[in-house]
């Protein structure tokens, strides 16, 4: 009886997950028929003209997440090295608890702070580039950086603490300094875990919707010539998530191809975050072994 119930509920849950993937594949079929590969490589999205190219949104999603990662990774690693390697155990736990609590701050709250503070700061700070407003890809990236910082810190800290203290003691016994021990023992041995922390944080950044939605500007069809230029990042843009969060989702249902294009976006997102998460967990796991 217990066994049957366990299996039953598990199958319900697994069924729901299967249905989830199935729905996205199946519902997006029309747009694949309509656009083919052009759906991914196309640079123009005009739904009235039935033109659905998602490249600018893929660009927006990736660039915003990368900006976040580049900003948050050094800071997060540094903080994790300090908590794991320098702080006494009790203080470390306290700092970790604090940081983990803050990892749970809802994204709409981050979004609110982004709208009311960060937007103006970015606008003023980069005034000489003459951005049209404070709603830019860079704003979204900076906001995401703050949001994924706790994830990076706490997972990296775990990875570093996973390195056996006997190794550290042996290195100190040879006369290596604290810093040398960190750099030659702790970091190299934790590198898989640190990589996993980055990947999982990247997954979170790619999929974040609400905070990005509020500050990215939601400007369709923005694909600059030079993707790695500060000026380009100071334009408004669109990410997959900000597109999905907008009102177009409500309009699209009913039109097969248009709806397929929207669901296709979700499928792309699912594939991107799924890959990154899977890599991240696989990566981290092997470091424990």
């Amino acid at each position: 009886m217990t066994r049957a119930l366990s299996w039953f509920f598990s199958f319900v849950a697994l069924g729901a997950v299967t249905l989830l993937v199935g729905v996205f594949v199946w519902q997006s079929l029309p747009v694949w028929h309509h656009e083919g590969w052009h759906y991914i490589t196309g640079t123009k999205w005009f739904f009235r003209q039935k033109e659905f190219g998602t490249l600018p949104m893929i660009y927006g999603t990736v660039i915003v997440a990368l900006i976040a990662l580049v900003l948050a990774a050094p800071l997060g690693f540094g903080a994790a090295i300090f908590t794991a390697e320098y702080l006494p155990r009790r203080v470390r736990l306290a700092v970790k608890v604090l940081i983990e609590l803050l990892a749970g701050v809802p994204s709409v709250v981050y979004g609110l702070l982004g709208i009311l503070l960060l937007r103006d700061w970015i606008y003023n700070l980069f005034e000489k580039f003459e951005p049209l407003s404070g709603d830019t890809l860079l704003t979204a990236g900076v906001l995401l950086a703050v949001m994924i910082l706790p994830t990076i810190v706490t997972l990296s800290d775990d990875a570093l603490r996973g390195v056996s203290s006997a190794q550290r003691r042996a290195a100190r016994g040879l006369g290596l300094t604290h810093a040398e021990t960190v750099l030659s023992i702790a970091l190299p041995q934790a590198k898989r875990g640190l990589g996993a922390a980055l990947l999982l944080a990247l997954g979170r950044a790619l999929g974040e919707t609400i905070a990005v939605f509020l500050v990215v500007g939601r400007q369709d069809n923005n694909l600059p010539e030079h993707v790695f230029s500060l000026r380009a990042w100071l334009d408004a843009g669109q990410t997959i998530t900000s597109k999905l969060g907008g009102s177009e989702t409500n309009i699209a249902y009913g039109d097969h191809v248009h709806w397929g294009a929207m669901v296709g976006l979700a499928l792309l997102l699912l594939i991107m975050t799924g890959t990154v998460t899977l890599l991240g967990t696989g990566f981290g796991k092997r470091s424990d072994a």
Binding site: Y86, L98, L102, L149
Partner: peptide, 29 residues
């Protein structure tokens, strides 16, 4: 070697401080 030792501690302490200050500041606002 000594200055590296000090530098790493100082830099990472600074990172930790920034991270905590950022997050606590956010709640305070």
């Amino acid at each position: 070697r000594k200055s590296l030792d000090f530098l790493l501690a100082a830099v990472t302490a600074f990172c930790a401080l920034v991270a905590v200050a950022l997050l606590v500041g956010l709640v305070a606002v």
